[in-house]
Amino acid sequence: MSADGGTVAAASSLRADLQLVAAMIPNGSRVLDVGCGEGELLAHLARSKGVDARGMELSQSGVNACVRHGLSVIQGDADHDLQDYPSASFDYVVLSQTLQATYRPRLVLENLVRIGRRAIVSFPNFGHWRMRLGLMLDGRMPRTPFLAYSWYDTPNIHFCTVMDFVALCDDLDVTVERSLTLDRHGRPFRLNPRAGLANLLAEQALFLLRRDRTS
């Protein structure tokens, strides 16, 4: 994560889960990264895959860092600023570790699969055993190394489990093309996300989605 003046993270230092996201995106695609931070993924995609990379980011410092590095990024948030984009205007729309921080995750998810021919969504799994154990044994809201916020200062207001997310996709007629369950460091497990074990062991999950259009 480079701050001002530095260079955008090189591919090798790209966060592990973002490397998995990048691997799902073919060369030359048009990509919108919602919540793009300081543009690590976008810079990587633009440089190594010739992607037409656009971003949206809530924090002003993140936006400014991106534009300083020549990336096309606007300030905005997933809850309010996705509705302006026309349907199928991007090949891929990425929402990485942000869904749980949105006010209306269901609407956000619908917008992602509307704007993108495909959507790539990753999120922390609240069904992980540490969460369950923390609440059961301590009787306190769970805190883990991966989600270290206290209940009163967390930006994460809409937690879900892997199974919850799959159920929402079913509800919205969103097709899961691929799914990966990951540990805290972004290393994948080989587990079916519909299986209870994945919901217990995965600290985060990564989905490749699409919604087939009738018209």
């Binding site: 936006v63 534009v67 990336l71 300030q75 205007s89």
Partner: peptide
């Protein structure tokens, strides 16, 4: 779908 950056 213009290519746009916006900074405040």
């Amino acid at each position: 779908t213009a290519n746009v950056s916006f900074v405040e």
